[in-house]
């Protein structure tokens, strides 16, 4: 199963190529912790953005908080630019139900009113539960509900996808 998954670096290169012509001078990239930040870092490098990259931890915005509680390792969100009036490219590793993206958008709006938000994901695995679709997807793959597709980072920084 693992062998059939494409190489992450080439998926990110394709994503960058698709995104590049759509960027405005002040578009900022925002990665969602943790896998989305890894992908966003790569895109930020490939696209040579002048702005620093932003990161979001959506733990304080999750819709399952009252059921499962606070994630034990919350990381600070960091948006080192003014969100108000800015074009944003939101980046996550895997789009599944869409609930993480919804939470991320809610959080972004608490920093200001962005001019636009577009969504780039490494993998759109299906199983959407909300009307949220990616503007850019490296890979569209229908993963059965009982399976998970995960992005992991090796010690040398190498990113790999795996099905479990």
């Amino acid at each position: 199963m693992h062998a059939s998954l494409p190489d992450v670096d080439s998926l990110i290169a394709q994503l960058a190529a698709a995104i590049a012509p759509t960027l405005t001078p002040d578009t900022a990239i925002v990665g969602i912790h943790t896998g989305g930040v890894w992908v966003a870092e790569r895109l930020h490098g490939l696209l040579q953005r002048p702005q620093p990259m932003g990161t979001l931890d959506i733990s304080f915005y999750r819709d399952d908080f009252s059921r499962i509680g606070l994630h034990p390792q919350v990381k600070p969100s960091n948006l080192p630019f003014d969100v108000e009036g800015r074009d944003l490219l939101l980046v996550d590793d895997v789009l599944h139900t869409g609930r993480t993206v919804r939470a991320a958008m809610n959080e972004l709006f608490d920093y200001g009113r962005p001019a636009s938000i577009r969504l780039a994901v490494l993998v759109d695995r299906g199983g959407h539960e909300l009307p949220i679709r990616p503007d850019f997807a490296g890979l569209v793959l229908a993963v059965p509900p009982h399976q998970n597709i995960n992005l992991s980072r090796l010690d040398d920084g190498h990113l790999t996808l795996s099905l479990a």
Binding site: F60, Y61, Q73, V74, S77, N78, D110, Y111
Partner: peptide
């Protein structure tokens, strides 16, 4: 340590346009 780390994340909320989270 978990309380202190979580508090660190909440420090940023006080600096934002909207100083609230919906938890």
């Amino acid at each position: 340590t978990q309380i202190l780390d979580t508090a660190e994340s909440f420090m940023d909320v006080g600096e934002r346009e909207v100083k609230k989270v919906p938890l």
